[in-house]
């Protein structure tokens, strides 16, 4: 029995269990902060270097497709300009009606800019470590977006100067969402690779490829109207209670280097 407790494997397990206990009480927070502060600058620079190297190699591999992509983008640009002029008109009309009805302006969001320092170390989870924490005003479960109101994820772990962000593509992430065109509600989950799964879509509703998915604001965790992605494939079966679709996120998580945290 005495030899059993002398074995390094038992010692290792004991140390890990003690640390799990300490972490659950929040007593490792300062240690984590000191560690991130020590390694942070190196990680930040290395991460930036990796991003640049990655985009350079992507560029080299996509030179042949650039011409076609340019033509597509020009076409999309024209369509968007047309939509923009219609939206400007609608916005003016909206403003006028608000004034007439005496309604308040929607509240402006207060944002904190953060830089991504590193990614999660496991293939089983998708996380970012960012350089903003409690002392910068970040709160637990704060929502993280990127330019253009695109949903990135949620703060799940926080220390004085750093935060861990669970991405929407993480297998354990859950976001209440709806299809913008039809207001059909469902649940967005992290899927394989960088795809999302849109689950719990009612069987009697028509879901089309290319439709836009945004946060619904149900459950009050995520604010409504944040852009998530576009439906890329419908996996529907009459046997199941609900429909399931695949969603391509609008955020390219591979090229992201800065995000905003909603205060």
């Amino acid at each position: 029995m005495r030899n059993f407790f002398k074995h390094p494997f038992v010692w290792s397990l004991l140390i890990i269990f003690v640390l799990i206990l300490l972490n659950s009480q929040g007593w490792l927070r300062d240690f984590k902060d000191i560690f991130f502060q020590t390694t942070g600058p190196v990680q930040k620079n290395l991460y930036q270097f990796s991003l640049k190297a990655n985009s350079f190699t992507d560029f080299l591999f996509s030179i042949k497709e650039l011409k076609q992509e340019n033509t597509n983008l020009k076409q999309t640009n024209q369509e968007l300009l047309n939509q923009l002029s219609q939206l400007r008109e609608a916005s003016r009309e909206n403003e006028f009606l608000r004034e007439q009805l005496g309604l308040f302006e929607p509240e402006q969001r207060e944002l904190i800019l953060a830089q991504i320092i590193s990614q999660g170390s496991s293939n089983s989870a998708r996380y970012f470590l960012i350089d903003q924490g409690i002392k910068h005003g970040v709160k637990q479960k704060a929502i993280v977006i990127t330019a253009g109101n695109l949903l990135v994820g949620q703060v799940t772990e926080i220390s004085d100067s750093f935060s861990m962000v669970q991405l929407i593509i993480d297998p354990n992430s859950r976001v209440n969402a709806l299809i913008q065109e039809t207001t059909v509600n469902g649940l967005i989950k992290g899927g394989p690779g960088s795809e999302l799964i849109f689950d719990l879509l009612p069987q009697d509703q028509l879901v089309k490829k290319g439709e836009t998915v945004v946060t619904s604001g149900l459950a009050g965790v995520f604010p409504p109207g944040l852009l998530i992605g576009q439906i890329s494939k419908i996996i529907s079966s009459q046997v199941q209670i609900s429909q399931v679709a695949r969603v391509k996120p609008v955020v390219d998580f591979e090229t992201l280097d800065k995000v905003f945290i909603i205060k």
């Binding site: 390094p8 494997f9 010692w11 290792s12 397990l13 140390i15 890990i16 269990f17 640390l19 799990i20 972490n23 659950s24 490792l28 984590k32 560690f35 991130f36 590193s118 999660g120 170390s121 496991s122 089983s124 989870a125 998708r126 996380y127 470590l129 799940t156 772990e157 861990m164 669970q166 993480d170």
Partner: peptide, 30 residues
């Protein structure tokens, strides 16, 4: 027996970045 301290340390460092429940990576690694 000679390297257990390095394995535990590496696992715990990975745990800090993994986003998984704390201790999971180190337990699996050890």
């Amino acid at each position: 027996e000679k390297m257990w301290w390095a394995i535990v340390s590496a696992g715990l460092l990975l745990d800090l970045f993994s986003g998984l429940p704390f201790g999971l990576t180190s337990l699996s690694l050890v």
